[in-house]
Protein backbone atom coordinates (compact mmCIF):
# COMPACT_ATOMS: atom_id res chain seq x y z
CA UNK A 1 0.00 0.00 0.00
CA UNK A 2 1.28 3.40 -0.98
CA UNK A 3 1.03 5.71 2.03
CA UNK A 4 0.95 8.81 -0.14
CA UNK A 5 -2.51 7.72 -1.12
CA UNK A 6 -5.61 7.15 0.98
CA UNK A 7 -7.23 3.71 0.83
CA UNK A 8 -9.88 4.76 -1.68
CA UNK A 9 -7.13 6.13 -3.95
CA UNK A 10 -5.23 2.83 -4.12
CA UNK A 11 -6.28 1.93 -7.70
CA UNK A 12 -4.76 5.24 -8.80
CA UNK A 13 -1.65 4.54 -6.74
CA UNK A 14 -1.17 1.17 -8.43
CA UNK A 15 -1.48 2.68 -11.88
CA UNK A 16 0.96 5.43 -10.99
CA UNK A 17 3.44 2.84 -9.78
CA UNK A 18 3.16 0.94 -13.07
CA UNK A 19 3.87 4.18 -14.96
CA UNK A 20 6.93 4.82 -12.82
CA UNK A 21 8.21 1.31 -13.42
CA UNK A 22 7.80 1.67 -17.18
CA UNK A 23 9.65 4.98 -17.11
CA UNK A 24 12.44 3.39 -15.12
CA UNK A 25 12.69 0.37 -17.36
CA UNK A 26 12.88 2.37 -20.58
CA UNK A 27 15.31 4.99 -19.29
CA UNK A 28 18.43 4.71 -21.44
CA UNK A 29 17.07 1.82 -23.47
CA UNK A 30 16.22 2.01 -27.17
CA UNK A 31 12.72 0.68 -26.75
CA UNK A 32 10.34 3.59 -26.53
CA UNK A 33 7.24 3.15 -24.49
CA UNK A 34 6.20 6.80 -24.68
CA UNK A 35 2.88 5.98 -26.22
CA UNK A 36 2.13 3.31 -23.68
CA UNK A 37 3.05 5.66 -20.83
CA UNK A 38 0.86 8.43 -22.24
CA UNK A 39 -2.01 6.01 -22.54
CA UNK A 40 -1.59 4.91 -18.93
CA UNK A 41 -1.35 8.48 -17.71
CA UNK A 42 -4.59 9.33 -19.42
CA UNK A 43 -6.13 6.29 -17.79
CA UNK A 44 -4.79 7.35 -14.39
CA UNK A 45 -6.31 10.79 -14.80
CA UNK A 46 -9.66 9.33 -15.76
CA UNK A 47 -9.52 6.95 -12.82
CA UNK A 48 -8.73 9.82 -10.43
CA UNK A 49 -11.62 11.84 -11.87
CA UNK A 50 -13.88 8.89 -11.36
CA UNK A 51 -12.77 8.31 -7.75
CA UNK A 52 -13.03 12.00 -6.85
CA UNK A 53 -16.34 12.66 -8.58
CA UNK A 54 -18.08 10.62 -5.95
CA UNK A 55 -16.37 10.92 -2.58
CA UNK A 56 -18.37 10.00 0.49
CA UNK A 57 -18.41 12.57 3.34
CA UNK A 58 -16.08 10.33 5.32
CA UNK A 59 -13.63 10.21 2.41
CA UNK A 60 -13.81 14.00 2.22
CA UNK A 61 -12.99 14.11 5.96
CA UNK A 62 -9.88 12.03 5.26
CA UNK A 63 -8.91 14.44 2.48
CA UNK A 64 -9.43 17.39 4.84
CA UNK A 65 -7.04 15.76 7.32
CA UNK A 66 -4.54 14.52 4.72
CA UNK A 67 -1.01 14.79 6.15
CA UNK A 68 0.29 16.27 2.87
CA UNK A 69 -2.40 18.92 2.64
CA UNK A 70 -1.14 22.53 2.57
CA UNK A 71 -1.45 24.19 6.00
CA UNK A 72 -2.09 27.82 6.90
CA UNK A 73 1.56 28.87 6.83
CA UNK A 74 2.03 27.26 3.39
CA UNK A 75 -0.76 29.46 2.04
CA UNK A 76 0.44 32.51 3.92
CA UNK A 77 3.99 32.24 2.62
CA UNK A 78 2.95 31.65 -0.99
CA UNK A 79 -0.10 33.85 -1.44
CA UNK A 80 1.07 36.85 0.57
CA UNK A 81 4.20 39.01 0.64
CA UNK A 82 5.80 40.95 3.49
CA UNK A 83 4.44 38.48 6.10
CA UNK A 84 5.37 39.51 9.60
CA UNK A 85 4.14 37.20 12.31
CA UNK A 86 2.90 38.82 15.52
CA UNK A 87 3.05 36.82 18.70
CA UNK A 88 1.37 36.48 22.07
CA UNK A 89 -1.82 37.37 23.89
CA UNK A 90 -0.02 39.96 26.08
CA UNK A 91 -1.15 38.18 29.23
CA UNK A 92 0.01 34.63 29.39
CA UNK A 93 1.63 32.96 26.40
CA UNK A 94 2.10 32.65 22.66
CA UNK A 95 0.01 29.80 21.28
CA UNK A 96 1.70 28.21 18.23
CA UNK A 97 -1.58 26.56 17.17
CA UNK A 98 -2.76 29.96 15.92
CA UNK A 99 -0.55 32.17 13.77
CA UNK A 100 -1.33 35.85 13.31
CA UNK A 101 0.37 38.62 11.44
CA UNK A 102 0.34 41.40 8.91
CA UNK A 103 1.02 40.79 5.23
CA UNK A 104 0.28 42.10 1.76
CA UNK A 105 -2.11 40.52 -0.71
CA UNK A 106 -1.27 41.85 -4.19
CA UNK A 107 0.28 44.85 -2.53
CA UNK A 108 -2.61 45.58 -0.20
CA UNK A 109 -1.94 45.36 3.54
CA UNK A 110 -4.12 43.03 5.58
CA UNK A 111 -4.17 40.88 8.70
CA UNK A 112 -3.98 37.11 8.42
CA UNK A 113 -5.02 34.71 11.18
CA UNK A 114 -4.69 30.98 10.70
CA UNK A 115 -4.78 27.74 12.62
CA UNK A 116 -1.59 25.80 12.08
CA UNK A 117 -1.12 22.04 12.28
CA UNK A 118 2.34 20.52 12.33
CA UNK A 119 3.95 18.74 9.41
CA UNK A 120 6.23 16.31 11.24
CA UNK A 121 5.94 14.66 14.65
CA UNK A 122 7.96 17.34 16.40
CA UNK A 123 6.07 20.24 14.87
CA UNK A 124 2.74 18.53 15.51
CA UNK A 125 3.47 18.48 19.22
CA UNK A 126 4.73 22.08 19.11
CA UNK A 127 1.55 23.20 17.33
CA UNK A 128 -0.60 21.00 19.61
CA UNK A 129 -2.05 19.36 16.47
CA UNK A 130 -3.69 22.65 15.55
CA UNK A 131 -5.82 22.73 18.70
CA UNK A 132 -5.71 26.27 20.13
CA UNK A 133 -5.79 27.12 23.80
CA UNK A 134 -7.49 30.22 25.25
CA UNK A 135 -4.31 32.27 24.79
CA UNK A 136 -4.45 31.43 21.06
CA UNK A 137 -7.96 32.82 20.73
CA UNK A 138 -7.01 35.85 22.83
CA UNK A 139 -4.00 36.48 20.59
CA UNK A 140 -6.32 36.25 17.57
CA UNK A 141 -8.70 38.72 19.22
CA UNK A 142 -5.87 41.14 19.93
CA UNK A 143 -4.79 41.04 16.29
CA UNK A 144 -8.39 41.40 15.07
CA UNK A 145 -8.76 44.53 17.16
CA UNK A 146 -5.47 45.77 15.79
CA UNK A 147 -6.87 45.22 12.28
CA UNK A 148 -9.97 47.22 13.19
CA UNK A 149 -7.91 50.05 14.64
CA UNK A 150 -5.70 50.39 11.57
CA UNK A 151 -8.35 49.68 8.96
CA UNK A 152 -6.90 46.42 7.73
CA UNK A 153 -9.16 43.69 6.36
CA UNK A 154 -8.91 40.28 8.03
CA UNK A 155 -8.35 36.97 6.31
CA UNK A 156 -8.74 33.85 8.43
CA UNK A 157 -7.63 30.35 7.47
CA UNK A 158 -9.47 27.69 9.48
CA UNK A 159 -7.87 24.30 10.06
CA UNK A 160 -8.40 22.73 13.47
CA UNK A 161 -9.77 19.49 14.89
CA UNK A 162 -11.24 21.75 17.60
CA UNK A 163 -10.30 23.94 20.55
CA UNK A 164 -7.98 22.06 22.93
CA UNK A 165 -9.86 19.99 25.51
CA UNK A 166 -7.31 20.08 28.32
CA UNK A 167 -7.05 20.88 32.00
CA UNK A 168 -4.97 24.03 31.45
CA UNK A 169 -7.30 25.24 28.71
CA UNK A 170 -10.27 24.93 31.06
CA UNK A 171 -8.36 26.62 33.88
CA UNK A 172 -7.86 29.64 31.63
CA UNK A 173 -11.52 29.61 30.50
CA UNK A 174 -11.58 28.20 26.98
CA UNK A 175 -15.32 28.89 26.83
CA UNK A 176 -14.92 32.58 27.49
CA UNK A 177 -12.09 32.90 24.98
CA UNK A 178 -14.25 31.44 22.20
CA UNK A 179 -17.40 33.32 23.24
CA UNK A 180 -15.50 36.62 23.38
CA UNK A 181 -14.26 36.19 19.81
CA UNK A 182 -17.78 35.42 18.58
CA UNK A 183 -19.26 38.58 20.07
CA UNK A 184 -16.33 40.80 19.06
CA UNK A 185 -16.15 39.51 15.48
CA UNK A 186 -19.89 40.03 15.03
CA UNK A 187 -19.47 43.79 14.98
CA UNK A 188 -15.79 44.33 14.23
CA UNK A 189 -15.49 47.39 12.00
CA UNK A 190 -13.41 45.89 9.21
CA UNK A 191 -14.11 43.30 6.47
CA UNK A 192 -13.58 39.68 7.57
CA UNK A 193 -13.09 36.89 5.05
CA UNK A 194 -12.95 33.31 6.39
CA UNK A 195 -11.83 30.17 4.56
CA UNK A 196 -11.93 26.62 5.85
CA UNK A 197 -8.79 25.09 4.33
CA UNK A 198 -8.94 21.70 6.07
CA UNK A 199 -10.85 20.85 9.23
CA UNK A 200 -13.45 23.23 10.61
CA UNK A 201 -13.76 21.69 14.05
CA UNK A 202 -16.69 23.12 15.98
CA UNK A 203 -16.50 26.19 18.26
CA UNK A 204 -12.73 26.14 17.93
CA UNK A 205 -13.14 26.88 14.22
CA UNK A 206 -16.06 29.30 14.56
CA UNK A 207 -14.03 31.46 16.96
CA UNK A 208 -12.13 32.76 13.92
CA UNK A 209 -14.95 32.04 11.48
CA UNK A 210 -17.58 34.75 12.01
CA UNK A 211 -17.15 36.68 8.76
CA UNK A 212 -18.65 38.69 5.92
CA UNK A 213 -17.91 35.91 3.48
CA UNK A 214 -17.25 32.28 4.35
CA UNK A 215 -15.53 29.96 1.88
CA UNK A 216 -14.59 26.31 2.08
CA UNK A 217 -12.04 24.45 0.02
CA UNK A 218 -13.72 21.69 -1.97
CA UNK A 219 -12.40 18.86 0.19
CA UNK A 220 -12.59 20.55 3.57
CA UNK A 221 -15.13 19.85 6.31
CA UNK A 222 -16.97 22.00 8.85
CA UNK A 223 -18.98 20.50 11.67
CA UNK A 224 -20.39 20.95 15.16
CA UNK A 225 -18.45 17.91 16.44
CA UNK A 226 -15.98 15.51 14.83
CA UNK A 227 -17.54 12.53 13.05
CA UNK A 228 -15.81 10.29 15.63
CA UNK A 229 -17.21 12.33 18.54
CA UNK A 230 -20.72 12.28 17.10
CA UNK A 231 -20.47 8.54 16.44
CA UNK A 232 -19.34 7.79 19.97
CA UNK A 233 -22.12 9.86 21.56
CA UNK A 234 -25.10 9.29 19.28
CA UNK A 235 -24.24 5.95 17.67
CA UNK A 236 -22.52 4.71 20.87
CA UNK A 237 -19.62 3.53 18.70
CA UNK A 238 -16.70 5.72 17.53
CA UNK A 239 -16.16 3.22 14.73
CA UNK A 240 -19.30 4.44 13.01
CA UNK A 241 -17.71 7.79 12.14
CA UNK A 242 -18.45 7.31 8.48
CA UNK A 243 -22.20 7.15 9.17
CA UNK A 244 -21.95 10.18 11.45
CA UNK A 245 -20.06 12.10 8.75
CA UNK A 246 -22.86 11.28 6.35
CA UNK A 247 -25.63 12.31 8.75
CA UNK A 248 -24.07 15.60 9.85
CA UNK A 249 -23.63 17.11 6.36
CA UNK A 250 -20.09 18.32 6.83
CA UNK A 251 -18.84 18.78 3.28
CA UNK A 252 -18.46 22.05 1.38
CA UNK A 253 -21.02 20.87 -1.18
CA UNK A 254 -23.66 20.03 1.44
CA UNK A 255 -23.12 23.20 3.46
CA UNK A 256 -23.24 25.36 0.35
CA UNK A 257 -26.52 23.66 -0.55
CA UNK A 258 -27.86 24.49 2.92
CA UNK A 259 -26.73 28.13 2.42
CA UNK A 260 -24.54 27.98 5.53
CA UNK A 261 -21.41 28.93 3.59
CA UNK A 262 -21.05 31.33 0.68
CA UNK A 263 -18.58 29.83 -1.73
CA UNK A 264 -16.67 26.66 -2.58
CA UNK A 265 -13.05 26.98 -3.66
CA UNK A 266 -12.29 24.21 -6.18
CA UNK A 267 -9.27 22.02 -5.53
CA UNK A 268 -6.93 20.47 -8.09
CA UNK A 269 -7.81 16.95 -9.23
CA UNK A 270 -6.93 14.57 -6.41
CA UNK A 271 -6.89 17.31 -3.75
CA UNK A 272 -4.97 20.43 -2.78
CA UNK A 273 -1.73 18.55 -2.11
CA UNK A 274 -1.57 17.02 -5.62
CA UNK A 275 -0.97 20.40 -7.25
CA UNK A 276 -0.03 22.93 -4.59
CA UNK A 277 0.84 25.82 -6.97
CA UNK A 278 -2.58 25.53 -8.64
CA UNK A 279 -4.32 25.44 -5.23
CA UNK A 280 -2.39 28.55 -4.15
CA UNK A 281 -3.29 30.54 -7.23
CA UNK A 282 -6.96 29.52 -7.08
CA UNK A 283 -7.31 30.59 -3.45
CA UNK A 284 -5.30 33.75 -4.01
CA UNK A 285 -7.65 34.81 -6.80
CA UNK A 286 -10.72 34.13 -4.65
CA UNK A 287 -9.28 36.14 -1.76
CA UNK A 288 -8.42 39.09 -4.00
CA UNK A 289 -11.84 39.14 -5.68
CA UNK A 290 -13.79 38.95 -2.42
CA UNK A 291 -11.65 41.43 -0.54
CA UNK A 292 -11.93 43.89 -3.40
CA UNK A 293 -15.72 43.56 -3.27
CA UNK A 294 -15.93 43.86 0.54
CA UNK A 295 -13.55 46.82 0.59
CA UNK A 296 -16.08 48.95 -1.28
CA UNK A 297 -19.05 48.19 0.95
CA UNK A 298 -19.77 51.11 3.33
CA UNK A 299 -19.08 50.12 6.96
CA UNK A 300 -22.65 50.48 8.23
CA UNK A 301 -23.90 48.31 5.40
CA UNK A 302 -21.14 45.77 5.92
CA UNK A 303 -22.03 45.41 9.60
CA UNK A 304 -25.78 45.32 8.96
CA UNK A 305 -25.35 42.59 6.34
CA UNK A 306 -23.08 40.59 8.63
CA UNK A 307 -25.64 40.86 11.42
CA UNK A 308 -28.57 39.89 9.21
CA UNK A 309 -26.68 36.87 7.94
CA UNK A 310 -25.97 35.71 11.49
CA UNK A 311 -29.61 36.20 12.43
CA UNK A 312 -30.77 34.20 9.38
CA UNK A 313 -29.03 31.00 10.56
CA UNK A 314 -31.50 28.40 11.72
CA UNK A 315 -34.60 26.57 10.61
CA UNK A 316 -37.75 26.39 12.68
CA UNK A 317 -41.43 25.86 12.48
CA UNK A 318 -43.64 28.84 13.27
CA UNK A 319 -47.03 27.21 13.11
CA UNK A 320 -48.59 27.25 16.55
CA UNK A 321 -49.34 23.74 17.70
CA UNK A 322 -52.47 23.02 19.67
CA UNK A 323 -51.43 21.38 22.88
CA UNK A 324 -52.79 17.90 23.22
CA UNK A 325 -54.92 17.43 26.30
Amino acid sequence: MNLNYLDFEQPVAELQQKIEELRHATAGSEVSLTEEIARLEQKSKELTEQVFSNLTPWQVAQMARHPHRPYALDYIKTIFTDWEELHGDRHYHDDPAIVCGVARLEGRACVVIGQQKGRDAKERVYRNFGMPKPEGYRKALRIMQLAEKFNLPIITLIDTPGAYPGIDAEQRNQSEAIARNLIELSNLRTPVLATVIGEGGSGGALAIGVADHVMMLQHSIYSVISPEGCASILFKDAGRASEAAEAMKITAKDLFGLKLIDEIVPEPLGGAHRDVPLMMSTLKQKLITNLERLRHVPMTQLLATRYDRLMSYGTYDTAPVAKSA
Binding site: E184, S186, V210
Partner: peptide, 20 residues
Amino acid sequence: MQESLFSLLQMAKTSAALAK
Protein backbone atom coordinates in the same frame (compact mmCIF):
# COMPACT_ATOMS: atom_id res chain seq x y z
CA MET B 1 -25.66 17.49 17.20
CA GLN B 2 -28.78 16.53 15.28
CA GLU B 3 -28.84 19.99 13.70
CA SER B 4 -25.11 19.93 13.01
CA LEU B 5 -23.79 23.21 11.58
CA PHE B 6 -27.14 24.94 12.14
CA SER B 7 -26.51 24.38 15.85
CA LEU B 8 -22.91 25.52 15.73
CA LEU B 9 -23.97 28.78 14.09
CA GLN B 10 -26.42 29.49 16.93
CA MET B 11 -23.32 30.25 18.99
CA ALA B 12 -22.47 33.09 16.63
CA LYS B 13 -26.11 34.17 16.33
CA THR B 14 -26.78 34.44 20.06
CA SER B 15 -23.44 36.17 20.70
CA ALA B 16 -24.05 38.72 17.94
CA ALA B 17 -27.44 39.58 19.45
CA LEU B 18 -25.77 40.13 22.83
CA ALA B 19 -23.43 42.63 21.17
CA LYS B 20 -26.51 44.78 20.40
